[in-house]
């Protein structure tokens, strides 16, 4: 069983298929850099919320959610560094704004 995994949920049409391999590679590299896990052991899955099925603040959403599951025991400082690097990388690759992204790193 992997010690770290990601489930990424995007709104349909927000992030094209061509970017997903790059996003996955970035998440795996950050995991290696911050948590020391081999990229090969970090599964990343993507799913789309169909248009008209996702809302934020009561309005149609353009927000992506990157949900990481990590083995517990890291300090909050490390967790924040991990999430911030993911934010920065995801925005750079996808072109989304900081307000269009939610990142979590939950203990499993």
């Amino acid at each position: 069983m992997s010690r770290v995994s990601f489930n990424c949920t995007m709104q349909e049409g927000q992030i094209g298929e061509e970017l997903r391999a790059e996003l996955a590679a970035a998440l795996q590299q950050i995991t290696q850099d911050v948590l020391g896990e081999s990229p090969d052991d970090v599964p990343v899955t993507f799913s789309d919320i169909p248009s008209g099925y996702g809302f934020r603040g009561g309005e149609p959403s353009t927000t992506s959610l990157v949900r990481g599951s990590i083995v517990g025991g890291v300090t909050q400082e490390v967790r924040e560094d991990f999430m911030r690097r993911i934010c920065d990388s995801w925005m750079e690759i996808s072109g989304c704004t900081v307000d269009e992204l939610v990142v979590s790193a939950r203990d499993v």
Binding site: E80, M83, R84, C87, V98, L101, S104
Partner: peptide, 13 residues
Amino acid sequence: EGPAKWTMEGGMV
């Protein structure tokens, strides 16, 4: 529920 500090939204924990 989960700890708030596990999530970053709008660039803020």
